[in-house]
Write a protein that binds this DNA or RNA. Structure first.
Lengths: 348, 348
DNA sequence: GCCGTCCTGTTTAACGCTAAAGTGGCGCGC
DNA sequence: GCGCGCCACTTTAGCGTTAAACAGGACGGC
């Protein structure tokens, strides 16, 4: 495990350290092909690996990207949802392919963020799993290259010159797809379930799309209600229980949840209350996580390309890092409706 | 985002850089309380954050730990199972609490490992999700502080002086618990489903415990069979389908899977084949992942303390890093049987 | 009163790397 | 044959930090 340094390689080849550095970094205009070849050889033979610490120190870029997540002291639900896990995997792979590394870090406040970034000289950060409100509390420095996954971060859209970008699914289209699917099945008592109290842009977009589809189908404005729940299975179960009465009263015939975990919980809550899904109520999810195929009934859902999301996040971030002002500040992945067993024709 | 350095703090206070360094690193025996206080003050005022790069370079310890996972180029299933996700969360939190950071990295071969470690001067690594065979291919240097989660790594137990440690659940006890539960319900046609072809120590232990419990219950040696499957939902579904015939023939009445995802798949495969769980067959999982409560029927399972596993991994690793030779090289978290709906009395 | 210690610092020399400036030899134009 | 530019390197300096050696004054013992 002894570090092989540039000096070792230089000595082995009989050139200066700087020449080796030039070869290693591909500045071949400064080195003759013959020398370059000898250096390459020695690098391979000795197993030289450049020290990121030394490079960071002098070059002011680390090749390290932080994935910042809402961090509780006990680490429970650091990567809360299957969606986040999928994005993380794709993000890591994409960064790996572009010669960058990923640091995983739970953060609680603005100090945590600043500390991580400064301590390691992070080139940039990806933030995932934060509500817009939590994000505002993080008070991201405008100079910090940051990509927000499924969040807005208030100022981002406004000022415009902050080095921040956003990645999400095409939420409006997703909402519209959901609405079209459900109204197409004859549903007229619609509920959007999710973190609607959070003033989240993502949820607002989905709701807007959902409502637009309802309007397209000729439904009155009051046909779409909302029900607040955080994106967890347990809150879904609770919400499902509460919704049961409305279903029985005939006010609600279909529920569109903002995530599959939530939808699965709602199905459970409804079922526990004695209702049948989809015979009595339809439930539609979002994400197409593995879970959607694993629960009973299998969830109909709005699928989004989570792997694409991770890749996009990597791309946008590296664009920001490179200081490419022409790079897009926002991108979304496509969505598609996957009809399975949890949705069916409206009862009656 | 300009870096505030030791020099800036030193100038502000009117002392040497070294004095500030001593205060920041808690070497208070070299500094008068009065000076220390002034330094602390300036550190807070200026928002000084030490540079990990510089510290790593000179001090030969980075405070960075790598979490190495089997890495495919596309990043799919980097954190394959809910179990791994839970461990990761707890690991990150534990490291955070001990002033360390976590680097997430998918690796394919020995070069990837060496490269990551050298490049960043990782203090140590945690390896998770590897089969024992894959681990052997990684060819971990004995001098590298490493903790293996749910794996053995061959040489680890043997040589003994390698700086490697292992964390797992109490697998033998888990197997025994599973066996006792199932035989207690009158089952006599038992199958252990999981990666049994992989020569994995973990699986072997669970099987041994399972068999021991069967023997305790007076069952003949042939009562426990094994069925190979990797730990995924889809392989579970396929296996469930194959097992259906044996169930109908009365040869199999209960299946013990090495993970909840696998168990859930098996339930699905069995159900799709027209069998009822648990009326016709019982299925028992392992882990007590969220999924166990989310599928129908809810899975009975052997719960293990995944958060404890993450914390233990952090502890063992930091012990190894500190060079504490007395530190334990192996630890396991407790298991407990959670009876839910997927297991019931043997049919007939 | 003198020497050894302790206390509280400071100075020096790296760590591995890169940007920028320097060097020396050789070919070429005229 | 002289200057110029260019090629293929080398030298110098410094990034922010720490280990180790050094310094000087107060204080105590005898």
């Amino acid at each position: 495990m002894e570090q092989v340094t540039l000096k070792d390689v230089a000595r082995a080849v009989g050139v200066s350290v700087m020449t080796v550095s030039n070869v290693v970094n591909g500045r071949l205009d400064r080195v003759s092909p013959a020398t370059a070849a000898r250096v390459e050889r020695a690098v391979a033979d000795l197993g030289y690996v450049p020290s990121a610490a030394a490079r960071t120190l002098v070059a002011r870029r680390s090749g390290l990207v932080g994935l910042l997540l809402p961090g509780r002291p006990d680490g429970v639900s650091l990567l809360g949802s299957p969606h986040d896990v999928a994005v993380t995997g794709a993000l890591e792979a994409a960064l790996r392919g572009r010669d960058h590394h990923l640091m995983l870090r739970g953060v609680g406040d603005a100090r945590d963020v600043r500390d991580s970034v400064r301590r390691w000289g992070l080139d940039g950060v990806v933030l995932m799993g934060f509500t817009d409100a939590a994000l505002a509390g993080l008070d991201l420095p405008p100079t910090l290259a940051a990509v927000l996954v499924d969040a807005d971060g208030g100022a981002v859209g406004a000022g415009g010159r902050a080095r921040h970008a956003r990645v999400r699914s095409d939420d409006r289209a997703g909402g519209r797809l959901a609405g079209a699917h459900l109204t197409g099945l004859g549903h007229a008592g619609l509920v959007l379930a999710g973190p609607v109290d959070g003033a989240s842009r993502v949820v607002a977009e989905r709701l807007a799309g959902f409502r637009a589809a309802a309007a397209d189908a000729g439904l009155p404005a009051g046909a779409v209600r909302t029900a607040h729940a955080r994106t967890t299975y347990d809150e879904g179960v609770a919400l499902g229980g509460r919704l049961a009465a409305d279903v029985r009263a005939g006010d609600v015939t279909a529920v569109f949840a903002t995530a599959d975990v939530l939808a699965a919980g709602i199905v459970r809550g409804l079922t526990d209350a004695g209702l049948r899904v989809p015979a009595d109520v339809s439930v539609l999810g979002y994400d197409d996580a593995d879970l959607a195929r694993q629960v009973t009934p299998r969830l109909s859902t709005v699928a989004q390309d989570t792997a694409g999301k991770g890749r996009l996040a990597a791309e946008l971030l590296l664009g920001l890092v490179a200081g490419d002002d022409a790079a897009p500040r926002s991108a979304s992945v496509p969505v598609a409706l996957v009809a399975r067993e949890s949705t069916g024709p409206a009862p009656g």
